[in-house]
């Protein structure tokens, strides 16, 4: 299961770490785009397997930010 970015922007903050249990709708990454903080939330529940971005990275719409298992 992958969590995708819903828009282009800079990764401002990652709010989970590998091994964390996340629930559906929980914010996992916060992007900064056009001077605004945009939360990206998990669409399903799961355990964080891998974080594929770092704080400060630039991501595009549709990029994978977190993998869940």
């Amino acid at each position: 299961m992958e969590v995708l970015s819903n828009m282009a922007g800079n990764v401002w903050k990652i709010t989970v770490k590998p091994g964390d249990q996340v629930t559906e709708g929980q914010d996992v990454v916060i992007l900064e785009s056009m001077k605004m903080e945009i939360p990206i939330s998990a669409e399903v529940s799961g355990i964080v397997d891998e974080i594929t971005v770092n704080e400060g990275d630039f991501v595009n719409d549709g990029d994978v930010v977190i993998k869940l298992k």
């Binding site: 828009m7 282009a8 922007g9 785009s33 056009m34 605004m36 945009i38």
Partner: peptide, 12 residues
Amino acid sequence: YAEDPNTFFPSP
């Protein structure tokens, strides 16, 4: 503004 009129989220 380039933004969603409902959520006010940016829309590049």
